[in-house]
């Protein structure tokens, strides 16, 4: 299943290997570079800031522990997101997301502490944007966990199908199909927010 990528040309794999050989600054560099993406991944998956922080720490502690036995077979980010995805899916399986779903589907519960402060110019626009973001969050939370992970990696982490396939341990075509179903679910759920004419003509430009 796992494809032989070109890990030697991956600078992060190189950092991991130098960390393995005893250079602690390499780990610090990896931590600096990937801590935020990993926390954001967990936040979008689980939508609980405290759990996101906790699981992100877990990822880096596991990498720290696994350094002695690290063998590069794929890009470092593939390995990183594979650990993160497994932790997130296990967490969701264990908690079944009930509380989170309740919270995110209730538009009136207000901002979670982790939303960006809104910079929309008018109060009306601010309210509209807030409502849209709430619905986006709820729609993503309503996806089955594997679809959710695929969408988050694809949309928010700019990962290609091939890498997502390696993270999820499935084929590239399975990922394409998974993403198609996920985006279709999101579109169906959010279609009432679509403003007709907004996107018209963009394709033909």
């Amino acid at each position: 299943m796992e494809r032989a990528a070109v890990p030697n040309r991956d600078p992060d794999t190189h950092l991991m290997l130098t960390f393995q050989q005893g250079d602690p600054s390499s780990f610090t560099q990896l931590l600096t570079k990937y801590r935020q993406p990993v926390v954001h991944f967990f936040y979008r998956m689980i939508q609980d800031p405290a759990v996101a922080e906790e699981l992100a720490q877990e990822v880096f502690l596991r990498i720290f522990h696994a350094r002695a036995r690290y063998v590069p077979k794929a890009r470092f980010t593939t390995w990183l997101f594979r650990i993160a995805t497994n932790l997130a899916l296990n967490y969701l399986r264990d908690t079944r997301m009930e509380q989170c779903r309740e919270r995110t589907t209730d538009v009136d519960t207000g901002e979670l502490p982790w939303d960006l402060p809104d910079t929309s110019p008018t109060p009306e626009e601010r309210l509209l944007r807030e409502a849209r973001v709430q619905e986006v969050r709820a729609a993503i939370a309503s996806l089955p966990p594997t679809q959710r992970a695929a969408v988050i990696m694809h949309k928010y982490h700019d990962m290609e199908y091939r890498e997502i396939a390696m993270v999820l341990g499935c084929s590239e075509s399975a990922v394409k199909s998974l993403l198609y179903r996920a985006y279709e679910n999101l579109r169906t759920r959010l279609v009432h927010l679509v403003r007709p004419g907004n996107a018209a003509g963009s394709l033909r430009r």
């Binding site: 986006v136 949309k155 985006y183 579109r187 959010l190 927010l193 679509v194 004419g197």
Partner: peptide, 11 residues
């Protein structure tokens, strides 16, 4: 397509 484009923007 229009809806998909708008979805992408909303996300």
């Amino acid at each position: 397509f229009e809806e998909q484009l708008e979805l992408w923007r909303m996300l």
